[in-house]
Nucleic acid binder design. Sequence first.
DNA 1: TATTGTTATACTCTATAACTATA
DNA 2: TATAGTTATAGAGTATAACAATA
Lengths: 149, 149
Amino acid sequence: MAQKRGEIQLDQSSVFAIGLLLRRAHTRAVQAFGAKLAPLGIELKHFAVMGVLVADEPLSQRQIGERVDSDKVSVVRILDDLEAKGLALRTSSETDRRVKTIELTPEGRKVYRAAHRASRGVEATLLEDLRPADRDRFMVMLRRFAHPE
Amino acid sequence: MAQKRGEIQLDQSSVFAIGLLLRRAHTRAVQAFGAKLAPLGIELKHFAVMGVLVADEPLSQRQIGERVDSDKVSVVRILDDLEAKGLALRTSSETDRRVKTIELTPEGRKVYRAAHRASRGVEATLLEDLRPADRDRFMVMLRRFAHPE
DNA sequence: TATTGTTATACTCTATAACTATA
DNA sequence: TATAGTTATAGAGTATAACAATA
């Protein structure tokens, strides 16, 4: 039998439980999205960047980093990927030649829509073991937990 | 101004938001524990392994991995760290010479208690932006989310 | 001088496979 | 043949610093 992770729940009262639980929760989410996005040749991180572009195009790389909570080096590499696949385009800004203006290509928009369709049910699937009334509450709390004032 | 992460909240309705939120939540927890544990020379992963040993000593490395949700390679390295610091001890099992019997040293127990004291308030601090009535609920939901049946 | 994006470097985490020694 | 632990390797993720171009 192959050695896997995630078979056992730990002591509920352990002070460190919250750290392990959040790690496990995060990997669950990455895997769930990954499974849906893999056929499209992208990962969650690409999907997220494309998502902020769809919502708020065009953006500089710095702005993208702020929105997806990644440092600038990571953004460079995600955009390298997207550009190599023909999904996004970097052009130097006219007004400030240091900044790159990032836009999705038509193909990028197409792939984004497909990714959106493919992953539409992922959040619901991830939350399905919570009681229906708790699902929204969990997301609200998670949002507050992740971004406390 | 140094370039940092985590300054902006993202579109609440994005399908991929749950992935980003869980990532951010996890790093928040690791950093919060890390800050308290660093003076003791350990990290959250060491604390977690020591915690399962305190609760259920002795354990094999395989059993430790199951309890802290880590693969066997990671367990080897965590125990290398703990043994090098004199906090844990590996001995070959009498009944099955393949398995190592892991126990904390007296010094290990001492450091664990100090770590426990130091990080006692971390979970509370992490949860303090939730409403008091929501804090237990969030942990219950997170537990179910991380370990669905 | 400071900022945007880039490159290089390094350190951690994770996943895999190969190896040993036992069973 | 299978398992517990070890080692080696490679791929991500993350952090830092240095750099080029520009402000």
